[in-house]
């Protein structure tokens, strides 16, 4: 609606009015965001003393080269990548399935859509706490269900086992994020005119063909938004893993945000931690941009 042409037509006085309305929020954001971001970048280039009172000696990119040559970093980066792949694909796929299901006509649809909201409205940390105990090896409900279904025969401590800890943290995070994806995709589906599907059905298109050639292309912009958000949430995830495993067992679930937290507040290596934080920020930005590129490619026609 606000096309560039329109803004050219606005008088100077009108533009000045809009500018003045925006200035307070803009100033606050610059002070609270740009300033600390700049400082963190400065920190990453210095050997900052543990009390953080001064910058300390300038060391150039030494912090970055220490980080990039550290096996701990690469192990943590691998865990972050594995977590992200599982989180993004499962959240998006389950979200899409739930959206398609809840877009059908059935009794109790309003109630089902309200259910969809619950995981999204639950704080991330609480999801971590809830799933930590749900997957617990002695009082957990997950074990009870798996035994009742005959899938396992004995109690298993999923979060103490390095092989199952990461999948279970992914599952917990997906439980929340799939609902968020479902809410957004359902909104996208609701704008899809029924006539399109009906016309295709008359032409003899099956369910799968209609999904592939009508639903999916229609949802493309919504899917792009969802995927980008999922990628960002994946790289920046902290709460769920902090509550469930604190990075353990060993370093099986130590994603980058947790590693940075340790560097900054447990061993107080502020310079190294800041270099790590800059790397994580860049990775999240690049990941988001690549996702946008991939999903919008071929969409512009």
């Amino acid at each position: 609606m606000t096309s560039p042409a329109l803004s050219n037509e606005l008088s100077r006085a009108d533009q000045w009015f809009g500018f003045r309305l925006t200035v307070p929020a803009a100033v606050i954001l610059i002070v609270l965001l740009a300033l600390p971001t700049g400082l963190t970048i400065l920190y990453s280039l210095h050997d900052v003393p543990a009390n953080g009172a001064s910058l300390g000696p300038f060391v150039g990119f030494e912090n970055f080269s220490i980080v990039l040559s550290s096996p701990v970093f690469w192990r943590s980066a691998t865990v972050t990548l594995l977590f992200s792949i599982g989180f993004v694909t499962l959240s998006t796929a389950i979200g899409l399935a739930m959206a398609i299901l809840l877009n059908q006509k059935f009794i109790g649809r309003g109630l089902a859509r309200a259910l969809l909201i619950i995981p999204w409205a639950t704080p991330w940390l609480v999801i971590g706490i809830l799933w930590k105990w749900f997957a617990d090896g002695s009082v957990g409900g997950l074990n009870a269900v798996l035994i009742a279904l005959g899938i396992t025969s004995d109690y298993h401590d999923f979060l103490a086992d390095p092989n199952t800890a990461l999948p279970v943290t992914i599952l917990a995070a997906v439980w929340r994020q799939a609902s968020f994806a479902g809410i957004l995709l359902l909104a996208g589906l609701q704008t899809l005119p029924d006539e399109l599907g009906e016309a295709a059905a008359l032409d003899g298109a099956g369910v799968w063909q209609r999904f592939l050639h009508i639903t999916l292309p229609w949802l493309r912009p919504a899917l792009a938004t969802v995927a980008v958000l999922n990628v960002i949430y994946a790289f920046l995830q902290f709460d769920v893993i902090f509550a469930m495993t604190q990075g353990g067992p060993g370093d099986a679930t130590q994603v980058l945000s947790l590693l940075i937290y340790r560097q900054l507040f447990a061993v107080t290596q502020i310079g190294l931690g800041s270099a790590l934080a800059v790397i994580l920020g860049l990775v999240a930005l690049v990941g988001g941009l690549i996702t946008v590129k991939l999903l919008y490619r071929g969409h512009v026609q």
Partner: peptide
């Protein structure tokens, strides 16, 4: 009342979502 630079400001707002909390907490 979009002023000159309003569009850039909106884009900057979107980019803030990518800034990790952990990168500015120090």
């Amino acid at each position: 009342y979009p002023f000159r630079g309003a569009r850039s400001f909106e884009l900057a707002i979107i980019v803030t979502r990518v800034v990790p909390a952990i990168a500015i907490i120090g």
